[in-house]
């Protein structure tokens, strides 16, 4: 068909192309990425492929990463902020196997970071790309299940429904009851789903130096936020957007103003809070920052690589 059959350069015995996807699929995804960058926050339909992992488990992010990844990239994969979570391990292993690229757990060393549910605490740079895994890309989906309708709303920038929903929250609960996947407005135009990151991470998206790409495999959408782009969390004058505040710093590294995981230590109400961003926490501890539970035997398995078992 083509003058040059796409050469199989993967280390995986040549069964699959570099980074698994065939070149035509990569081209199709690359075109969608360019459109996404040109129209920030707009969800570009793309012919998402079946991947060798289930829909809903990061196939969108994996396809975006596979389409942009090069042999000289260094890849970091996190899930819930951690490099050690099972799905992050699985996706990282997939790219090690199919692309043979270097991987890292260090945020600062990565050129591409694929994430599910968190944005790293460390500031990202111009030279990095953040790839989000997105389950439901349509921020209006839970208000209007029909694609035909939501597409019209985006076309006309008619987002009244979203404001009504948020306001109903306030009337009912005294708060906007959306704590994650909190909708944002990009570049004063499109309302966008930031993926199910906690709203704590929303401010990091605003004018981030790194390019942010979003892949939703099952729903077949790609979207993007270019660097230095205005990203505003929706709110009201009398109920301004605010993020979660944790009462205590990280028990292991003492970090404040970071997102913390609550860890239940026993069945008697014992619990501690530790950084959700495991690399950030390790980095701080290696620089001598210690939290009040760092030496506690109850927390020792959190600070090490921990038990390994099936």
């Amino acid at each position: 068909m083509s003058a040059h059959p796409d050469t199989a350069t993967s280390p995986d015995e040549g069964h699959y192309n570099f980074a698994y996807l065939d070149e035509q699929t990569k081209r199709m995804i690359r075109r969608a990425i360019l459109k996404g960058i040109a129209v920030p926050g707009y969800q570009v339909p793309f012919a998402s492929r079946e991947m060798p992992m289930p829909y809903g488990w990061g196939t969108g992010g994996v396809q975006v990463t596979a389409a942009i990844l090069g042999a000289d990239d260094t890849l970091k994969v996190i899930d819930q902020g951690s490099d050690d979570t099972t799905n992050a391990v699985s996706i990282r292993g997939f790219f090690e196997k199919t692309a043979g690229v270097e991987t890292t757990t260090r945020t600062s060393e990565a050129s591409i970071i694929q994430t599910r549910h968190r944005i790293p605490e460390a500031l990202l740079t111009e030279d990095q790309v953040l790839v989000y895994q997105v389950p439901i890309p349509e921020p209006l989906r839970f208000l209007e299940p029909r694609e035909t309708e939501t597409r019209k709303m985006h076309a006309l920038a008619e987002y009244g429904l979203m404001h009504v929903k948020l306001y109903e929250d306030i009337a009912r609960n005294g708060h906007i009851a959306t704590t994650y996947a909190y909708p944002v407005e990009v570049n004063d135009r499109y309302v966008m789903d930031p993926s199910p990151t906690p709203k704590f991470d929303n401010p990091k998206m605003h004018e981030m130096a790194a390019l942010q790409l979003f892949g939703a495999g099952r729903e077949k959408r790609i979207y993007a936020i270019p660097p230095h782009t205005k990203v505003k969390s929706l709110d009201f004058d009398d109920h301004p957007f605010e993020v979660q505040k944790f009462e205590k710093p990280c028990g292991l590294c003492g970090a404040e103003n970071v997102y913390l995981d609550e860890v239940i230590l026993d069945d008697k109400g014992g619990r501690m809070f530790v950084c959700s961003d495991s690399d950030h926490c390790e980095d701080r501890r290696s620089h001598g920052h210690l939290g009040e539970m760092a030496a506690d035997p109850a927390a020792s398995h959190l600070a090490s690589t921990g038990e390994e078992r099936a």
Binding site: S2, T7, E23, K26, L34, I37, A71
Partner: peptide, 13 residues
Amino acid sequence: PVHDAQRCFRALM
């Protein structure tokens, strides 16, 4: 084709 296209695309992106 694989790596040349990738390099070109990354510069473009």
